[in-house]
């Protein structure tokens, strides 16, 4: 009995140690970013292993605001991410609904075709997409950044998986009541998979917010710059003297998606709890 207790305690200590170590590994870059953004330039170069600032300063943030049109880049990023997320969610929900609830003999083939597109690397379609956008005169526009991302096989795939868990009889009951598909989607299916939709939204938003290569190709004008492109301004190729400002901007860029996540988290958790008693 006694040995069993000791064994259990040791086991718990071991797993806690593993968890704490993992947390530190994940948290370190984040902490490094936040703390560096609060250090004066001299401390950043001098401090070596010590990541904690001796003196806290907000100079880096002030400098950031001077060096880039901060509100403008945030607004640009926000617009690109929101537009992409919104349209991508609309197309994905519609696609997933059709594939799940309106099956015909081609449904599976269409679905596999979508899945195949997930295996095409970005670098392969980058150039054709660029040329297409150039022909459409959409270079240097927010729509240009978003357009190629308006449909996404992986989002369709994940939403389809969630929709498959909705009991078929609910949809059949709706069909017997002559509920139009659009109403069925918005009033029945979407409320039931809202946790999945919320997490997909965050996923889409953050992905787009963090995007670097594609916006860099499309956006030339300083006015159109997104926050990831702005960050690049301070980490120049000749040795990056703007670490503090770069980290300040990085902290700002992380803050917004983080706040969104925290707001949506409550929603995700609450819908997780109610999904457990689906009939």
């Amino acid at each position: 009995m006694q040995t069993k207790k000791v064994k259990n305690t040791l086991k718990q200590i071991f797993w806690h140690a593993v968890i704490i170590a993992t947390v530190i590994v994940f948290l370190y870059p984040f902490l490094y970013m936040v703390l560096t953004s609060l250090k004066p330039f001299a401390d950043i170069v001098a401090s070596g292993a010590n990541i904690f600032p001796k003196r806290i300063t907000f100079d880096n943030y002030i400098h950031t605001a001077d060096a880039v049109p901060l509100l403008r880049v945030i607004a640009n990023s926000f617009m690109v991410a929101t537009l992409t997320m919104t349209v991508k969610m609309i197309t994905s929900v519609l696609g997933a609904y059709a594939l799940t609830f309106l099956p015909n003999k081609y449904s599976n083939k269409v679905f596999y075709f979508f899945i195949i597109t997930m295996f095409v690397p970005f670098s392969v379609i980058m150039l054709p997409n660029y040329l297409t956008l150039a022909k459409l005169s959409l270079l240097d526009t927010i729509v240009g950044v978003s357009l190629p991302q308006f449909a996404d096989a992986s989002a369709i795939f994940r939403l389809r998986q969630s929709m498959r868990l909705v009991p078929k009889s609910l949809i059949e009951a709706a069909r017997l009541d002559k509920v139009p598909h659009m109403t069925c989607l918005t009033k029945i299916v979407m409320p039931l998979i809202k946790s999945s939709i919320a997490s997909q939204c965050i996923f889409m938003f953050v992905n787009c917010w963090n995007e670097y290569v594609w916006p860099m190709l499309i956006l030339r004008n300083q006015e159109m710059m997104t926050i990831t492109l702005a960050m690049k301004k301070f980490s120049g190729s000749e040795g990056s003297t703007g670490w503090g400002t770069s980290m300040a901007l990085a902290t700002i860029s992380v803050a917004l998606p983080l706040v969104l996540y925290l707001i949506a988290q409550k929603q995700i958790i609450s819908s997780f709890m109610s999904s457990g008693i689906k009939e």
Binding site: P167, S169, A173, L176, D177, K178, V179, L192, K278, E279
Partner: peptide, 16 residues
Amino acid sequence: GDRDVAMVFQNYALYP
């Protein structure tokens, strides 16, 4: 929807 039938399902199919 055009057949004018009412149906009770085995799992009741109530909207949760």
